[in-house]
Design a protein around this nucleic acid. Structure first.
Lengths: 345, 345
DNA sequence: GTGAAAGCGCTAACAC
DNA sequence: GTGTTAGCGCTTTCAC
């Protein structure tokens, strides 16, 4: 039982070849299903492979064929409830195409981002799915110059030659604002995330667009830019309340902001939706269970992740030559927090 | 500018050596900080490295030194709110030690799990962090026989020679049940996840232990085993209500079960905490924001992930020779749902 | 201190 | 159909 002596992973193609009395080339051909090998040898080799518990060494393979079959996935933070579904979408698509995904959390810090990018370069990933941080400009240049396929996810980066998978944020914001307007709200505050992110900027446009269409004045005091976080929503609302500005609606640029806002309103004994109607964005899972359940703009996050990875695969394989942009449609999900009559689940 | 012609990643150690007029051995030594190289050469080489934008090829390195500097992380589903913090903990620790983590979602299916394990073998990961599915026995044997370092996370696997990082589930369940008892509850239902998982089994013990200590009868009709999901919690509660059994408290084996239970109770116009006090387990983020805010048993999930990865690194490097078991202490977080007087946040 | 050379496990010409 | 062989980019003995 000399094959018990070594670990499975120490068995090489050479051992298999020896044991089966063929050349390593033949073994390789069979392993890769290249064809052109007699049935007899094929069976014999497969037998030996099983018996020796041979495990192909893909790092050797990667070195030889210059293809690691792994990709990098760069996001700010998996603990942010927006990302798990996105990651899962990427992962599922990756797996179907036999790619490993290396997960990287940058916390939105550019230095971390840069470290990771270089790390992934050294790992010779075949491509990257990238959700940018606030000031990713330099890193994006780094990425672009590398020549490795990239797809931008959730956030578009202007001037970058890369595919992007995003939601129509402007439309979504428009729908959210319009919904509040149609509910009779006249003074709708807008608690935005960062304007530096395309999502933030585009949602600002949508908010404005709705106001314009319905001939409502745009009041600067009702618009607060911050971050896409609970705390930001809470603080912005605090400012709003303190400012004494009247408002009967809030469009929050994502659900976490919305929840932060509602918690703050509650502290001030302002009732949602009776006193103020609130609409969020994303439709994270919590939106369903939160009380009041959040009216929100759903993004098909899982599908977006999946789509991004599929595009990446196409670019890696060369099937897709040009960059492309996939724009997903947002959907208004009406629940309690906006105070609408017809409430869905 | 012939170096503009090729991508950075096509520059090899050989190009650097040539350009700097030294041998590749010298370049390698410098790159790896091995010492024993004159300052003059060191500076010259570093200069060239920068100028050529040389990017080390770690797949070649991995092949040579038989160490991929990547690990596999196998979990059921990143979309399950329990896991993001766990993953983040693993990831942060991994990064600090320069390991890449390859994320794998099995959905708790053993076949998926097996596929992933073999996939990771072929990638020659240096180790694995593993959160088992319901019937992982065979896969675990596979893992154990491979000889590669493994650490079990969140769920212990009996009879497996591997390190484990877990919470003291029995204690946690005891605390949860005791809390309800001390609130005067006499008929405490226990909605468990799966008994097949160590966490489920241990929590069942803790529930029982508390009942015994306080001389309350264990009533089989009040104990329902299901899965660690919202749906399971909802359905179990439906059964409970329909059964006509009296109960004034529910200990749910995790927060998702608790939320499912509360939603179901609400449907039946049973008020929480007035009619029934509910305690969950995990302290996922939603527990804070859910209404009523969930009293629950907190697990230090992030720290557990971190700890698991640190142990793995020690095992890989050989610093740690024997398996070890890290048991984290649970903590009772009192909020609204149990109906206690002193409510924290 | 530095360099020459072997070889990690694999694929893919190329030869037969 | 099958085998021989050259390297993929790197690390590391061994010799000088």
């Amino acid at each position: 039982m000399e094959n018990n002596k070594q670990e499975s992973r120490d068995i090489t193609i050479k051992d298999v070849a020896q044991e089966a009395n063929v050349s390593i080339a033949t073994v390789s051909r069979i392993l890769n299903g290249k064809g052109g090998v007699s049935l007899a040898l094929t069976k014999r080799v497969q037998e030996v492979v099983k018996q020796l518990k041979y495990q192909p060494n893909n790092v050797a393979r990667a070195l030889k064929i210059k293809e690691s079959r792994s990709i990098g996935l760069i996001i700010p933070d998996i603990e942010n409830p927006f990302f798990p579904a996105l990651v899962r979408g990427v992962e599922d698509a990756a797996q179907r195409h036999d790619y490993a995904v290396i997960l990287c959390n940058t916390d939105g810090r550019v230095e971390e981002e840069k470290k990771y990018i270089e790390f992934l370069f050294s790992k010779r990933v075949d491509g990257m799915v990238f959700t940018e941080s606030l000031d990713s400009k330099n890193n994006i240049a780094l990425l672009a110059s590398s020549g490795i396929p990239i797809v931008l996810l959730d956030r578009r980066v202007e001037g970058m030659q890369a595919s992007a998978v995003v939601t129509d944020n402007q439309l979504g914001a428009f729908m959210a604002t319009e919904h509040l307007i149609q509910l009779g709200k006249k003074n709708i505050a807008f608690l935005n995330g960062s304007l530096k992110l395309s999502s933030g900027a585009e949602r600002a446009n949508g908010y404005r667009e709705a106001l314009t269409k319905y001939k409502l004045a745009y009041k600067e005091q009702l618009v607060i830019n911050g971050a896409f976080t609970y705390d930001s929503g809470y603080e912005a609302t605090e400012m709003l309340v303190r400012s004494g500005q009247k408002f009967d609606g809030i469009f929050a640029s994502n659900d976490m902001i919305a929840i932060g806002a509602i918690e703050c309103l509650a502290k001030h004994n302002i009732k949602v939706p009776e006193d103020v109607g609130v609409v969020g964005f994303d439709d994270i899972r919590m939106a369903t269970w939160y009380k009041p359940a959040l009216t929100t703009i759903r993004q098909p996050v899982y599908d977006m992740g999946k789509c991004a990875m599929n595009i990446l695969v196409e670019q890696i394989s060369g099937v897709r030559e040009k960059y492309c942009e996939q724009i997903f449609m947002p959907e208004l999900i009406i629940r309690k927090s906006s105070g609408a009559k017809e409430v869905g689940k």
